[in-house]
């Protein structure tokens, strides 16, 4: 199982890009933390989700 923003999901073996494509996240407006590190955007397509991964997707909204 992969934990994403606190929810356990059965998506082991998918890439991060494949998972994100099933969500409403706008890839240009997020950062993804995986087991304590930020995943480079250029690697979403080759980052394969493993059993036990803990992931947080952080969304940016406008204003400053």
């Amino acid at each position: 199982m992969v934990k994403i923003n606190g929810t356990e999901l059965d998506i082991v073996g998918k890439t991060l890009a494949e998972y994100l494509a099933t969500t409403n996240y706008d890839i240009k407006r997020i950062a993804v933390e995986r087991n304590g590190d930020i995943v480079p955007k250029a690697q979403y397509g080759i980052s394969v989700l493993r059993d036990g991964d803990s992931i947080e997707v952080v969304s940016f909204v406008g204003g400053g």
Partner: peptide, 10 residues
């Protein structure tokens, strides 16, 4: 801008 925030974070 949200996209620029994400860009700099990356």
């Amino acid at each position: 801008d949200a996209e620029r925030k994400a860009m700099l974070t990356d």
